[in-house]
Design a protein around this nucleic acid. Structure first.
Length: 474
RNA sequence: GUCCCCAUCGUCUAGAGGCCUAGGACAUCACCCUUUCAAGGUGAAGACACGGGUUCGAACCCCGUUGGGGACGCCA
């Protein structure tokens, strides 16, 4: 049997991080088993669906590297078909028209709650003759669900979950305007698409009881279900915007790499022994639903950051430069010169081990892309005051005298000077760093000088000595 | 409220009756490395929610309690 999974987001917002996890698990499962993975947009609620959201979902999926098979299915486009099969159920006596007004329903729920029962529809039109129907109300179509017995979901993650059929009411299939509800549409679409494994959030577990009733009414095979525990915010509460239930594109903007997001999301609720850093290839080899945990997990930004730092270190210098350049352009207010780009690229190896996000990477590499005189931040300015500045002034000629300008020759020259002046290397290295990078933190200072080149390095040094460097920006 | 689910360090988790004096990772702290900051290395601290069973033996099985989450729409 070919495994067929699907990711079915509703286009009401962007592809949020929880949805991304669901998509990833579905994708992994299908790809792992050589099956198919489909993307379906649940746009039956016209008022809340919009194309921007659909585009954002597609963009997010692509960014994460989750490719789908075949065309994207629009659930809305199947509306007529959905109505058709629902009406067949009415003809077969498996569903019926209900003429309750919204007010009547509301009242029903309220009394049920007051009496300590689950708020269910009481089936008052189940066996009534349609001739009794009020003429001014357009009916909905409800499924006639069994009253006795139990319904069991054989969930791949949660195990057998059982509920009394008396807890399942005759839910709505078709709205008064004839459009299908989600409950009808998912079942019909999943069946039509041949979905074999429904992997989705735990919040759908109780819906599954109803959906199973529908499968039974249609006489269709029931797919395998896997309800994965929900993601919570750091405070254990439902994930909301302030927690990081942001669109995937927000994470991209914050400077995260897709592979870091995927690794993090995968590891949240799923494990393979003690493995933490898991490549996509490895995930494809290892992923199995049986290893998905049963309890909800909290979102931990620190761990994501740690993973991101790891993947930044592993990324190629070229890719990192391409990712950082647009940010640098914004900071500089101008596109990077070829020279700036070249410096950034050759300095990238030293830069990337120190950044947790692309944003940090761009910030820390900015000094490579600035024109003289470069801005000096407060801490750096202090390093250049008094002694520091003097040392630079007396060191400069020694550097100028260098014929060969490499990491090693600069290193040797500076060390020699430090020794002669009876200084610790740090006493000269820090002022140098301040003058050359405008900051008190940077990659190794000899590497920085080598990357900057002799002329630029000496120039920045003389700017610092003469006070030409601007002590404004930070 | 009713129904359903869940419960190991602060967080993510390993653990499928003896391998557990409970392992790893992030975060925290200390030390090492070191020109700064990271990275890296070494080490510290830190958990089986509680109460009953079952068993020679329980983090693992059963029951209850407590706590958390989800669902109860003509939303998806």
């Amino acid at each position: 049997m070919t495994v067929i999974t699907r990711f079915a987001p509703s286009p009401t917002g962007f592809l949020h991080i929880g949805g991304a996890r669901t998509a990833l698990f579905n994708w992994l499962y299908a790809r792992r088993l050589g099956g198919k993975f489909h993307l379906r947009i649940e746009d039956t609620d016209r008022a809340r669906s919009n194309q921007d959201a659909v585009d954002a979902i597609i963009k997010g999926m692509k960014w994460l590297g989750l490719d789908w098979d075949g065309d994207i299915v629009s659930q809305f486009e199947g509306a007529n078909h959905h109505a058709e099969v629902a009406n067949q159920l009415v003809e077969q006596g498996k569903a019926y028209h209900c003429f309750c007004s919204p007010e009547e329903l509301e009242e029903m729920r309220e009394t049920a709650r007051k009496e300590g029962r689950t708020a269910l529809y009481d089936g008052r039109w189940r066996d009534r003759d349609p001739s009794e129907a009020p003429k001014d109300i357009r009916p909905v179509v409800r499924l006639k669900t069994p009253v006795d017995g139990d319904t069991v979901v054989a969930d791949m993650i949660q195990g057998d979950v059982r509920v009394k059929n008396s807890e399942i009411d005759d839910f709505v299939l078709l709205r008064a305007d004839g459009t299908p509800t989600y409950m009808l549409a998912v079942v019909v679409d999943d069946h039509d698409m041949g979905v074999t494994h429904v992997i989705r959030g735990d919040d759908h577990l109780t819906n599954t009881f109803r959906q199973i009733q529908l499968y039974d009414a249609f006489g269709w095979d029931i797919p395998a279900f896997a309800h994965m525990p929900l993601m919570h915010g750091a405070d254990g509460k439902k994930l909301s915007k302030r927690h990081g239930a942001l669109g995937v594109e927000a994470y991209e903007e914050m400077g995260f790499l897709p592979e870091a997001i995927c690794n993090y999301l995968l590891r949240l609720g799923w494990s393979h022994g003690d493995d933490e850093i898991i490549s996509r290839e490895q995930a494809l080899e290892w992923f199995d639903i049986k290893d998905v945990g049963r309890s909800a997990a909290r979102f931990d930004a620190d761990k994501l950051l740690h993973l991101n730092a790891h993947y930044i270190r592993e990324a190629s210098d070229r890719r990192l430069v391409d990712l950082a350049m647009p940010l640098l352009k914004d900071r500089l207010g101008d596109a990077l010169s070829d020279q700036a780009e070249t410096r950034l690229l050759s300095g990238m190896d030293g830069l990337k081990g120190r950044a947790r996000t692309i944003v940090e990477l761009a910030e820390s590499g900015e000094f490579y892309t600035r024109n003289r005189p470069i801005p000096i931040n407060d801490k750096a300015a202090k390093l250049l005051d008094g002694e520091g500045g003097k040392h630079i002034a007396s060191l400069a000629p020694h550097l100028e005298a260098l014929n060969e300008w490499t990491d090693q020759t600069i290193d040797a020259a500076v060390r020699e000077y430090a020794e002669k002046s009876d200084l610790k290397l740090g006493n000269i290295a820090q002022p140098l760093r301040a003058a050359l990078t405008g900051s008190n933190v940077s990659p190794g200072i000899f590497e920085v000088m080598a990357t900057l080149g002799k002329e630029e390095s000496l120039g920045r040094l003389s700017d610092a000595i003469s006070g030409r460097a601007s002590p404004s920006a930070n």
